[in-house]
Nucleic acid binder design. Structure first.
Lengths: 218, 218
DNA sequence: CAAAAAAGTTAGGCTGTACTAATTTGGCTC
DNA sequence: GAGCCAAATTAGTACAGCCTAACTTTTTTG
């Protein structure tokens, strides 16, 4: 419950915890110890210990045996890292020829090391983008983030032509597949037909393609 | 005395120690505990402790009370960091508008975080340069480094026109001054006159300038 | 060349972050 | 509602790196 206005710098570990908890609690439910442990590949006791320290620092709210939620300060820290991560990804893809699937790990390490000044220079070089290469929104430096609602491709009507806006980044191999088939944000796609019972969708991207049982969640 | 061919990754601290020891022992003399402590802003006992660990890892040769020298493995680690540092500096100056005096600190942190792949992409974007923006040589990825011998400006004859090749990077404020006065590598300079007894030198850079008592060591 | 000063090392401690093993708590089932 | 399982926490340990205080070795100097 420290004021946290004078914000001492966070360690790398703390930054990773905040990001993880942000992701896990994005739906409003608290993040559980074991989910955090799973996401960060750590043991549950390690997470328990860190949760205690982060609570004492006022970065999160802990209800024992129930889970944690970020405080305002914690959320600020998390969004700062997400901004960094997504800008770094955008920069590496835009200026250094990185591909979708390799850029994540690089950004994961750089996000802890880069200065505020460099982040802003990269943002400037990119034209202060609002979205990263996968279509995920980039928080602004004051910590606000546009979170537009898109229609999952699975729910588009047959015959409709839509623009891909965002792709799920949680699985690298799926990403690689999407990249290979040209399903990138900004691309126009027409839904040709849909098989019932969560069956595959056929769509046209210029040439055409027929894929994805329902891993086209969006 | 481990073989060190399977090279476990070095920690940030270890990387900094290796760089410091490389610098301090570049003349062939061993680096002393207190010089290392001074350079890294650490206490002497901290350095003593780290020296023991690094010796055990086979990264340096320690003669108690006498000093340390890098082993082949240690030198490899040091040159790897110097390559990273100088390429990052060159990249930030060349592509992101950094100035001489601000680029060092940024590189100091990034050099520990960047992947081998990103370093090589930056090198490629720069056209595999052999020298960084200050004129310091960049070690190649196999660990060799050209170390040309240049004539200090203080020893140039009056009337001669020479090209600036390299500037001393050890003092940020001096660097800032040099940058301001246009004394950058690649620039042509004519020595107009020299005052005796380590007095100031007058030189022409297009317009002209008269500076530097003898901090123009090169 | 002996004593003082400087440099280096050892001893002992602290913090951050991780671990395993043991214990506690909460929720589910019969 | 008793018992059990899973999840969470506590207890105790380790290691990297840092520190200060105290001691030893080397160098300098009167």
């Amino acid at each position: 419950m420290t004021p946290a206005l004078l914000a001492e710098p966070l360690t790398r570990s703390v930054e990773d915890y905040l990001k993880a908890i942000y992701r896990l609690s994005s739906g409003g439910q608290p993040a559980s110890t074991s989910d955090i442990a799973e996401l960060l590949s750590l043991s549950a006791p390690s997470v328990s210990g860190m949760i205690r320290r982060l609570s004492e620092q006022g970065l999160l709210e802990h209800v024992p045996y129930r889970g944690v939620l970020l405080t305002v300060a914690g959320r600020r820290g998390a969004l700062r890292m997400i901004r960094r991560h997504r800008l770094i990804e955008a920069y590496l893809v835009g200026f250094l020829g990185y591909s979708w699937d390799t850029v994540h790990d690089e950004a994961e390490r750089l996000e802890h090391a880069v200065s505020e000044a460099l982040i802003e220079r990269m943002a400037l070089a990119l034209g202060n983008p609002r979205f990263d290469p996968h279509g995920d929104p980039i928080p602004s430096s004051d910590g606000s983030m546009a979170e537009p609602v898109y229609t999952p491709l699975a729910e588009v009507r047959v015959g409709e032509t839509v623009e891909i806006r965002r792709v799920d980044t949680s699985q690298p191999e799926r990403l690689r597949y999407l990249e290979h088939s040209g399903l990138k944000p900004g691309i126009q796609v027409t839904l040709l037909e849909r098989q019932p019972f969560r069956g595959p969708l056929k769509l046209r991207i210029g040439a055409e393609e027929q894929v994805i049982g329902h891993e086209l969640a969006q």
